[in-house]
């Protein structure tokens, strides 16, 4: 209960910050709002101000703002000529799909391979695997994207270079998704591999592991029935804390692969100085991070009874 209150407070603060930041920014709000591709007269500026309620006292603006947020009205983009919420909604799905799939594969593969590697002896096979993941770990995702794109799309040509359309067939979309998901998954898997490996090595020495063996369990059974669950606790925390980085990594990857997602949207909005869109994206991404942390907290509680008690 306390936790839920804390998350609600976090959301409240984030949404409020999103209200104040543009108003604290230097320069004329209308210019900021419309971007620099418009030149408007003073009368239209005043008219616009009145229409947007910018001439009212701050408190009234704040209350109106909350009403807008609750109605998911994030304002109007003069650059894209549509509602910000609509633009974001159309891109959000693809980014969420990319991030979601990558977290799924990256966590699954990273955790399982890391667990096996930490559990086994440090033989050449495990050493090679660790070196490989260390190498991935040290490579920024966007650079990895460039390499992968160069090799698979440009040199070998089995995957498309660009040209992602939402309307394509399933196989078409899958083809475009494969490489970006691969890159992000690998990059995530490398982190998870390292954490899980270390975590399993730590659990390996604990008494309950020895006791499981004394009960008559075999090696793999001990690893997957006993060690894995305990060792994955730090991993869950890490993935939750990392959601912000994961999303920002995904944005770069999207740009490199010319995917139709939030990354490309941010890129375009930045070039056009489209503040309403940027603000909307900021809001959505932070909410995503908070929600992801909340989910991780719930999962953590399901796995670890000691955490559940503290609620």
């Amino acid at each position: 209960m306390k936790k839920i209150a804390r998350y609600l407070l976090a959301l409240f603060i984030i949404i409020s910050i999103n209200f104040f930041i543009p108003r604290l920014m230097p320069g004329d709000p209308i210019t900021n709002l419309m971007g620099e591709d418009y030149i408007v007269s003073q009368e239209s500026i005043d008219a616009l101000k009145a229409e947007l309620g910018l001439d009212k006292p701050l408190l009234v603006q704040y209350v109106t703002y909350w009403g807008d947020v609750i109605r998911l009205d994030l304002g109007h983009s003069f650059h894209f000529h549509t509602e910000v919420s609509q633009i974001i909604a159309s891109k959000l799905f693809w980014t969420t799909a990319l991030v979601g799939l990558s977290i799924l594969f990256g966590t699954l593969f990273g955790a399982i391979l890391g667990a096996l590697s930490g559990w086994g002896k440090n033989d050449p096979k495990n050493k090679t695997l660790t070196t490989f993941f260390l190498w991935i770990y040290c490579t920024p995702p966007f650079f990895l994207s460039l390499v992968v794109l160069y090799v698979f799309a440009f040199k070998i040509g089995i995957f498309p270079l660009r040209g992602f359309y939402e309307t394509g067939t399933f196989t078409d979309i899958a083809k475009h998704f494969f490489l970006p998901v691969l890159v992000l998954s690998l990059s995530l898997a490398s982190r998870n591999y390292m954490i899980m490996r270390g975590s399993i090595i730590q659990e390996k020495g604990k008494l309950y592991i020895l006791y499981a063996r004394a009960k008559g369990l075999l090696n793999r059974g001990i690893l997957f029935r006993h060690a894995f669950k305990n060792a994955s606790l730090p991993l869950i925390t890490l993935v939750a804390l990392d959601i912000g980085f994961i999303i920002s990594g995904a944005l770069f990857v999207e740009i490199v692969f010319s995917m139709n997602g939030m990354g490309t949207l941010i890129f375009d909005a930045l070039l056009a100085r489209d503040y309403p869109v940027l603000q909307g994206i900021f809001l959505i991404i932070t909410i995503m991070v908070v929600v992801a942390n909340f989910l991780a907290d719930i999962v953590y509680g399901i796995i670890d009874p000691r955490v559940r008690e503290q609620r």
Partner: peptide, 16 residues
């Protein structure tokens, strides 16, 4: 052959 360890709380798995 079964064994009882001297540290029962550590011998049991905390998350099961």
């Amino acid at each position: 052959i079964s064994i009882i360890f001297q540290n029962p709380t550590l011998a049991l798995n905390p998350v099961y």
